[in-house]
Simulated assay, not measured.
Amino acid sequence: MDRRKSLKSIVLGSVAGGLAIHGCKPSTEGAVLVEAPKITYPGRVPLETELINELQDEQFLNPHELETLTILCDLILPPSDEFKGASDADVVGFIEFMCKDQETLQPDIRGGLMWLDHKCNTENGVEFKGATQEQQKAILDEIAFYDPEIPGNERPFEVNFFSTVRNLTMTGFYTSKIGIEEIGYKGNMPNVWDGVPEDVLEQHGVSYDEEWLAKCVDQSKRGVIAEWDEDGNLLT
């Protein structure tokens, strides 16, 4: 299994990565607030739509944090000649939204980005976003994996931070239009069903109503989308 396929499996993992640090909502002083357009979301009730638009109007990450996170996400899921990368699916926008929707993520994401800059400044004399890709990867290699079998090797904050961002990156990408197309998911597709086999019906002493059978097990209409009237009666 190659690295890309391995990362896809993380989509089903826990987004929070076991982190539950509670704190006051961090200040967004200095952040550039861009008012998002009001959008009506299909399948959402009015209350949900109102909440989503309220969150879109808020800004959590400042420009420096957004730039750093963009680099980090593209290192986790880089583009290639065959596949798109994290930035192509606006994964950072997804993480920004999740931080506003689940405020317990905010200290972890902001603290982790601060840790990256401090670590990189200490070792390379530059902020994380200004380092070379080799320097950036060297730092990430130290926190990308955790071996609980090593005696005294407690899971540190920075490992949890990277795990959280990695999970959010994969979740954001593979639930986007680009990611869904990459997986090849087509959604629910009609198939051929001829009903319960006759021998099984006989075993249980039941049979199909001919009118119902003609309406529901007619393969000539398998491409027709069912419609109901206001009273719930099947029309087609």
Rank of each mutant, 00 (worst) to 15 (best):
L7R: 06
P148I: 05
G172S: 09
N121S: 04
T169V: 00
D74L: 02
W228P: 07
A16K: 04
F173L: 07
D108G: 07
T236V: 15
D90G: 11
C216Y: 14
S9M: 11
P148E: 07
D101P: 02
Q59M: 14
I225D: 15
D108H: 11
G111T: 05
N153Q: 12
T122K: 04
E198A: 09
Y41G: 11
A31E: 08
T169H: 01
N121P: 00
L75V: 00
E134W: 04
Y185F: 11
L201I: 06
L105V: 09
N53L: 08
S87M: 14
D2I: 11
S80V: 15
I183M: 11
G18K: 09
D231V: 14
K129F: 13
V196H: 06
L201N: 10
F161M: 01
L51I: 15
H64D: 07
V126E: 01
E103I: 08
M1A: 12
P78Q: 11
K137T: 09
G179T: 01
D81H: 12
P79H: 12
S6W: 15
P63N: 10
M170W: 04
A138P: 04
A138N: 10
I143D: 01
G195R: 05
E149C: 07
D74T: 04
M189L: 14
L113G: 00
F145M: 12
I150N: 03
T171W: 10
F162P: 03
P148V: 10
Y208D: 05
Y146I: 03
F145D: 06
L77Y: 12
E227K: 15
E29W: 05
V126G: 02
K25R: 15
T104C: 09
E123H: 03
T70W: 03
